[in-house]
Amino acid sequence: MSESSATRLNVFKTYKLYVGGKFPRSESGRVYEVSDSKGKWLANAPLSSRKDARDAVVAARKAFGGWSGATAYNRGQILYRIAEMLEGRREQFVREVGEAEGLSKSKAGAVVDAAIDRWVWYAGWTDKIGQIVGGANPVAGPFFNLSTPEPTGVVTVIAPQDSSFLGLVSVIAPVIATGNTVVVIASEKSPLPALSLGEVLATSDLPGGVVNILSGKAGEMGPHLASHQDVNAIDLAGADPVLAKELEIAAADNLKRVLRPQPVDDWSADPGMSRMTAFLETKTVWHPTGSLGAGGSSY
């Protein structure tokens, strides 16, 4: 090591939230210490307040029109772009995931690869989900009757606590693939991979506000998001049973869609479609076929 590098000061990274396409600190000014699996200090992460959560919902609502109105093809391209960007920063995420979850380099590498592949998987689904869960319905009349899936709206996600990166990607990718926007509370214990993901999303053509990442306590922000009148659904993936029950009760007030926590042993397994269909509504339209004319005209 040369003399100049030996005396060089460390440049620590300030982890920040990702809200509305920007990287703010917590409105409250609070941070908390994040340590690795052995208890060694890694960094300070923002300890978000309910006002950060409120701002994130506003950003997500603002982004919803554009994102849900984008073509499915365009959404697929952007999700694929996220995978491309992640691939370029693979080393960083291998290190962060390894530190956060106490994994060896090769195991952390496998987790990051699985997360990248997960983006590709959902990128492919964006323009195919409509054919699977929508379609033409047979009706007894001269009508076309078509059902199409529509996004639910602004979805709040409590990210899995243990799988800080693959688990996070596995819960937010299906939500945004179908046109929803999301406010996610990252794993409280290991939020750093999630906060770094925000930097990837910001450079992936993803419109600001489609994904909003908060770090902090799910127990503090969760009740306010669950009772928020402008949040349409909540995914309780990372909530413990007591919190999940409390949030489901709070969410009942405005008829939010609630996805209860489901035990997941292995986040790298085939995710299936259930996480996408959980946040879709079905729109059905009737349209005359054209054989209605009184004079027998076909139009």
Binding site: R61, S227, H228, Q229, D230, V231
Partner: peptide, 14 residues
């Protein structure tokens, strides 16, 4: 005002 009276954040739908 709705937030203060109900304790819940309100939204533009209301």
């Amino acid at each position: 005002r709705q937030k203060l009276s109900t304790g819940r954040y309100s939204g533009p739908d209301y």
